[in-house]
Simulated scan of single mutants.
Amino acid sequence: MRPHHLVLLTALAGTLASCQTMTPEERRAANESKCVDYGFKPRTEGMARCLLDLDLDRRADLRQWQDEVNNRPRFYGPVIVQQPVVVRPR
Rank of each mutant, 00 (worst) to 15 (best):
R2P: 14
P3A: 14
H4L: 15
L8E: 09
L8C: 12
L9K: 00
T10H: 05
L12G: 06
A13G: 13
A13W: 14
T15H: 04
T15I: 05
L16M: 07
A17Y: 08
C19E: 08
C19H: 05
Q20L: 10
T21D: 11
E26C: 14
E26Q: 15
R27P: 03
R28E: 15
A30S: 02
A30W: 00
A30N: 02
S33L: 13
S33F: 08
K34I: 03
C35G: 04
C35A: 04
C35Y: 04
Y38F: 12
G39T: 08
F40Q: 09
K41M: 13
P42W: 06
T44Y: 10
E45Y: 02
E45V: 02
E45F: 07
G46A: 14
M47Q: 04
A48H: 03
A48R: 13
A48F: 07
R49E: 13
R49G: 03
R49Y: 04
C50V: 03
L51E: 06
L51K: 06
L51G: 02
L52D: 11
L52S: 14
D57R: 11
D57V: 10
D57G: 09
R59D: 03
R59N: 03
A60Q: 10
L62H: 00
R63D: 14
R63C: 04
R63P: 01
R63M: 13
W65C: 01
W65Y: 11
W65V: 01
D67W: 00
E68A: 02
E68F: 04
V69R: 07
N70Y: 05
N71A: 09
P73E: 02
P73V: 05
Y76A: 10
V79K: 11
V81M: 08
Q82K: 13
Q83S: 07
R88Y: 09
R88Q: 09
R88C: 05
P89W: 11
R90A: 14
R90C: 03
R90P: 15
